[in-house]
Design a protein around this nucleic acid. Structure first.
Lengths: 120, 120
DNA sequence: CTGGATCCGATTTGATACTG
DNA sequence: CAGTATCAAATCGGATCCAG
């Protein structure tokens, strides 16, 4: 298995490299939300349950820096910022979709039930 | 996006569920090593660069508990233990391969060079 | 040879407060 | 509305030691 450096981090294989770009708890959900077009910061925040302000901003920064999403700032008050997928981000959606389908398959195997509105 | 529980952990989407099963730094490399057949603990340890004893054993435990690999113990001294893929593990290999190819594609885009034998 | 347990530092994440 | 900074809590990973 090869071994290489990127941004001063040591990687052991291509899978790890890919997962460091679009893995983690929140990056795929964020990309997925942008699948159908432009979203504002607040929309993303509302659409993704439980994500904290800090996590959303940091994940958006990283995805932007690595060219998966584009950030457009409007010089208005109050601020308005729109996020959208770049071609690289659109390519990633195909992969996310693939993994998502595998996840659904696994969930069925493991007998996972959706958690319906819980009392409390 | 749905939301559900598994092993007392809250998941927000199928992607996260899948990644919790076979994601992380080491699970895919471990599965990948078993792609071509049975391996002993020591072989895995030698074949996977930089993995520590602790990580290898913990990852093998989890993969076994969740049905991706099978553990066969021989009642001999010193101990001999063989690991192999279950059908579920073999199915996972297809996914790993897919992500791996995407990783290679990304590496090319990012201009990542393999790290050749370093001085020191 | 395989594997469990412990200690401890490093990294990640959440909560909160503050800003233009 | 969108974003930054700070501090504390939680999680993770590595090194090390013990055991059958």
């Amino acid at each position: 298995m090869p071994e290489f450096l990127f941004n001063n981090k040591l990687y052991y294989n291509p899978v790890e490299f890919a997962m460091d770009r679009i893995g983690g708890t929140w990056k795929m959900p964020v990309l997925w939300r942008l699948k159908d077009g432009i979203k504002r910061y607040g929309e993303l925040k509302n659409d993704i349950p439980h994500i904290t302000h800090k996590m959303l901003t940091s994940q958006l920064r990283e995805l932007e820096e690595e060219g998966f999403i584009k950030r457009k700032v409007y010089a208005v008050v109050p601020p308005k910022v729109e996020y959208s997928l770049t071609p690289r981000g659109k390519r990633a959606i195909v992969v996310v979709d693939y993994i998502r389908n595998y996840g659904l398959e696994l969930m069925k195997e493991f007998g996972v039930k959706e958690k319906k509105a819980k009392t409390r």
